[in-house]
Design a protein around this nucleic acid. Structure first.
Lengths: 200, 200, 200, 200
DNA sequence: GATGAATGAGGTTTCATTCAT
DNA sequence: AATGAATGAAACCTCATTCAT
């Protein structure tokens, strides 16, 4: 497939939807807005997706799995637990750097809508926590991490920290726009998380 | 007809709205749903609020300030920094215990909406981070906390951790329904946050 | 009744309504606007008038009769037919000068609405034409006016001319704000109407 | 399904609107009434027009220009000034004969709404007066008309006379339903206007 | 008389979705 | 595949009117 021109229409629509949802929010976005952004007729959206909700669902399904893959990848990697945390944290922060609109949609629209989504994605969401929880258990097993702390709560805490920092970027209450800063931020977060904020 | 309690109609509407928003989400909730829940005609909602958005805004404005007051209170209290963190964390978790619907709305709807709300509440949101940041600075100044960590990022991390744990409760992926558990969870979160997850 | 303070509330409401209707048009005016303008509670309007339409009707009924009286007066007066026309024309133009808002309502709202008003005022409207028509017949009988012209059409033409000139003032496409000009305009209109625009 | 005539939907809607507005008045007419009259779903009205007001505006814009064209045509025609007046007057009266509903809307709704219309049509309205004024100046210049009478006031008087006669037809206080009568009426109006009602 | 809380019919408008072309 | 006219459910909001106080 010589990706020269055609560009998969489906992807074209998804990318347009990400842009539009990020700008206006899912509920305030019209199917016609997406189509206009994609430069197609709005009827065509219904060739590729059952309905508007399906568009949002697809964004989630197809992007979230990439994130899960990355966690799996780092989890298995021959690096220290601290490096695993840092890598995941940086990956998420940098994802925002690379595709801010996508992250806005994932964070503001999907995470918070999942309670209401028909085809609920809670299970897929959960997978992230389970993976991270497993990674923490691994760390505890190998002696990198304290064993007396609940791995599930720790996973939630870690992702929550990252998520709110990303929200800060999304809502523009935190500023940072370059890879170097993101690297530094990732290290700080992991530093707090592993070494603690307390004085020794 | 001696109404047993006069009951402020405005509050009646707000409480009904919290219940309805928590159940269906803001956008899926109709003004008539709120009115029905409140046992009034929907036209009356427009006597007390300019429109549906104003109802959501009011919920936020009038409840968020309570949270800010609590942070201020604990910040000034003659207790250790760790105790301050634990108190705040428990307060939030227990708020969910006491008024789960209110917390659902605050967590799921307002953060998402604040980007789009006319009269954006970002400033009020920020105040929470500023207060917590100040509290961390205090802790650093008095030697309770390491001085080499960015207070702002730490504040975001701490609240993010709590927020995602609450989201876990809201989305029912985390279970816990009694004060004792919440107290334990608060201690765990603060433990991780201050002492770190790493082995010494 | 010492008219010192009380001021008839009914009149107060009517005057407020005239002001409000003139500014926003009947349909765009709310009962509460009228009440606000009158400085009373809007429920009180319903003590004095059956409903909003009744307010408009009353304005018409109570003011139009004044106009009819003036036509009757001049018709009977011991003056030339030309003077009668001039007096009526000036009276109407000057009424606008004195109470522009009242004239706006009479011209813009009532004429338009009379087709739809419940208690249609067409008969009262007609009375003006009948009176003027009678005046024209008198003029024809006494030899002041040509006898070969339809008096009814003449009456419509005369009032129509004045009405559109007033509309010009109302819509601000014609300008004139002093009694002297109005006197001059009245004379011009009657000049055209009686002597004709044609060259002799 | 071979539609006998394609029929422009936009025009279909406008014609339906004219009928409905004439019958009930603009404010008393619902968009659904228009749609029903046009035999379409009411949502379709919003494909062709921004809102209800736009429908009224379009009626005006697209019909008033025809009238202006006629004035221009007669003004330039190689006929006497009297013939010009008579032609215009007859054209308007006959327009009512041909499309009474359109004229009702133009006269009762638009003329009197223009003060409130967003995109005010006052300028287009004015153009009619300007053209007629120019025609009168021409008549004065060529010696057909007296030069000592204000052309602007004369134009208002002439159109006002016609308008009120039409209003008489609309409100059914004047009766006339055939071309021959309209021709006669036009001649009478112009007779009064040019030769005057006074005896020589 | 006077108030304004309360009601709810009524209307506008939006927009997801269908479908003939 | 692609288009966009057409549909109509659905929701918001207004505001005339009533009525308890």
């Amino acid at each position: 497939m010589a990706q020269s021109q055609p560009i998969d229409k489906r992807t074209l629509i998804l990318d347009a939807a990400i842009k539009v949802f990020a700008k206006n929010g899912y509920h305030r976005s019209r199917v016609s807005d997406i189509a206009e952004e994609a430069g197609i007729a709005y009827g065509l959206v219904y060739h590729y997706f059952k309905n508007k909700e399906e568009v949002l669902s697809s964004i989630f399904r197809e992007r979230w799995s990439a994130f899960l893959d990355v966690i799996r990848l780092y989890r298995e990697a021959p690096i220290t637990t601290r490096e695993k945390f840092t890598s995941i944290c940086f990956y998420l922060l940098n994802s925002y750097n690379l595709r801010p609109e996508l992250m806005e949609v994932l964070i503001l629209e999907i995470a918070r809508s999942s309670k209401f989504l028909q085809d609920s994605h809670i299970e897929e969401f959960n997978e992230a926590f389970r993976l991270l929880e497993g990674m923490i258990r691994d760390g505890q097993a190998c002696g990198d991490l304290r064993a007396d702390v609940d791995p599930s709560l720790s996973a939630y805490s870690f992702l929550g920290a990252i998520e709110l920092i990303l929200t800060g970027y999304v809502l523009n209450t935190l500023k940072a726009r370059d890879v170097k800063t993101y690297q530094k931020v990732a290290e700080t977060v992991v530093d707090v998380f592993i070494d603690g904020l307390g004085k020794r």
